[in-house]
């Protein structure tokens, strides 16, 4: 080295633009942090506002009493029940089919025409707007099958709507299990099904559970598809818990829409705000429990 280039003593430190790079780093960190904070603030403001509007409406009476058509003071008891009832029905239909299809596509199907056809159909199904699925349900379940508005019809329409998403969730959950684990199992003389059953499924139980609960949260809030299939009234008997799947079953989200847009009761705004708050809290509980359960299951199944 000659004495004419004293500044290149350590070639990895480029003093000329170090401050510039530090600035860019700080700006990027700041921007990303602000975006993240923005999301948190948005949610906080949203929940705060709904609490402000709806908290005073909520009472034991409001949560359990049947709704009222004309006079003030109606409750949302049957709606809460119907929301969960339809959710459970939908999950009973959706989870087995979606999981099986997801396992098949991810673990068994070889790339080819059949596989890509199924994928294409699932993606197309996923892009159908829920109102269109609602009208489809109206034609098939309400009119052609003569069921009229029923919890079952609503659940089946919701199944069609959420099947692709849950299949996707299954596929992604399975894909998150490293190929090396499958090979490790097969190299011990395990069959494909033993490998899936004992290594792949336990290894993906956390993302699968999380995915199912998040989709459950979405199903709870689904409205348009149910207006035309499960209807906007609760069962004629007006008892809060009607297990008959062939009765009309207005859910909480449908009730929220109905009282706000069509309702005749003088306290429609209060009922709407109260319903919205309850709905939001239910969805929040779903999302939080998805996280807790996901972590717990993953710990249980990985021995960690």
């Amino acid at each position: 080295m000659t004495a004419t280039t004293p500044s290149t003593a350590t070639p990895f430190v480029r003093k000329d633009n170090a401050s510039q790079r530090r600035l860019a780093d700080a700006v990027a960190t700041g921007l990303l942090w602000t975006a993240a904070l923005g999301i948190v603030l948005l949610l906080a403001v949203f929940i705060g506002y709904l609490l402000y509007l709806g908290a005073h409406v909520i009472s034991w009476h409001f949560l359990t009493a049947p709704p009222s058509e004309i006079s003030a003071g109606g409750g949302i008891g049957p709606e809460i029940f119907n929301s969960f009832y339809i959710l459970v029905l939908t999950l009973i239909f959706t989870v087995p089919v979606a999981t099986a299809a997801g396992i098949y596509l991810q673990e068994y199907a070889r790339p080819g025409l059949f596989n890509s056809t199924v994928q294409f159909c699932a993606e197309s199904l996923a892009t159908i707007p829920s109102i269109v699925m609602g009208l489809f349900g109206l034609i098939v379940f309400v009119q052609v099958l003569h069921w009229h508005f029923t919890a079952l019809g609503g659940a089946l329409a919701l199944t069609l709507l959420n099947l692709p998403a849950l299949m996707r969730v299954t596929q992604e959950g399975l894909a998150s299990v490293p190929q090396a684990l499958r090979e490790g199992s097969m190299a011990l003389g395990a069959t494909k099904w033993q490998t899936i059953r004992r290594v792949v499924l336990p290894g993906s139980i956390a993302p699968l559970t999380t995915g199912i609960i998040l989709i459950a949260g979405r199903i709870i809030g689904e409205t348009a598809v149910l207006i035309y299939t499960a209807g906007v009234s609760v069962s004629p008997g007006r008892s809060a818990f009607n297990w008959n799947p062939f009765h009309p079953a207005e859910t909480l989200s449908v009730h929220l829409w109905y009282t706000h847009s069509e309702g005749l009761v003088p306290d429609a705004v209060d009922i709407g705000n109260g319903s919205a708050l309850v709905l939001l809290l239910i969805v929040l509980v779903f999302n939080i429990s998805a996280r807790i359960l996901g972590r717990g299951l993953s710990r249980h199944f990985t021995g960690k």
């Binding site: 090979e183 490790g184 199992s185 003389g189 395990a190 021995g303």
Partner: peptide, 29 residues
């Protein structure tokens, strides 16, 4: 593959306990 076992380049223990890893093979058989 039961008669010809394989050890891979990167260690690939199952996300299970140490015990469960060793008895995995005997159990499936």
């Amino acid at each position: 593959r039961h008669r010809i076992g394989m050890v891979f380049q990167r260690p690939n223990p199952f996300p299970k306990t140490i015990y469960e890893n060793v008895v995995y093979g005997p159990k499936i058989h």
